[in-house]
Every structure is written in C-alpha cells, then in structure tokens.
C-alpha cells in the first residue's frame, strides 16, 4: 500500500491496494462499509474510473475488487482526513484477516 495522503481543507484521498487473498468479499466489504459509516464526510472508492460509495456494502461488492487491485479512497467533508486514514489502515491490516 502506498500512503501518499493528499489533504486539502476538507477533502482527502489515498491510494490503497487490496492485500487480502480473496479480494473485497462479503466480510471485508461489511467491515469497510461499517467503518465508513462512522464518518460524516462523503467517502468514495474509485477503481478504473468507476466510483462507488464506501458506506454501501452493496456498492463495494459490485466493485468485485480482486486481490492486488489498487484503488483510490476519496473523502469530502469536515472529517475527511481522519476517515481516509482510518480506512487506509483497514486496507493495510487486510481487514483483520490472516491472509
């Protein structure tokens, strides 16, 4: 995962890589959506120009992101930098999965 966070006043973004062996399947998707829902800002995930709502497990699933795939986390709103940081951490910890 590269962690070049770019933060302006109330927007932030970061590049992340899907590190867990199975990609963004149901369990990580659920964790990701729940984490995103804790923040007030709008958060989206962008893969190959496709942008989805990070607070929606269904949106995340439809990305069908496979292992090794890279994506951009984008957030807009007062707590955007914090949101991007904590979601990046979820990716780097592989959503708490062993592999």
């Amino acid at each position: 995962m590269s962690n070049e966070e770019t933060a302006q006043e109330d927007s932030a973004s970061a590049e992340v890589r899907v590190g867990n062996e199975l990609g963004l399947h149901a369990r990580p998707a659920a964790r990701l959506a729940k984490e995103a829902q804790r923040f007030a800002c709008d958060i989206s995930l962008v893969v190959d120009g496709q942008e989805v709502d990070a607070k929606s497990i269904l949106d995340i699933l439809t990305l069908a992101a496979s292992p090794g795939c890279t994506m951009t986390i984008r957030a807009k709103g007062s707590d955007a930098p914090l949101a991007v940081r904590s979601i990046s951490e979820l990716f780097s910890s592989r959503f708490g999965e062993e592999k």
Partner: peptide, 16 residues
C-alpha cells in the same frame, strides 16, 4: 454470526 453480520450491514446500507 459472520453471515448474520453481513445481512445486518446490508439492511443498514444507505444505497439500498
């Protein structure tokens, strides 16, 4: 419990 958990997350999905 993991299945139940993901079902609850779908119910709380803002998009849906």
């Amino acid at each position: 419990s993991l299945i139940i958990d993901s079902h609850a997350t779908i119910m709380r999905d803002p998009k849906l």
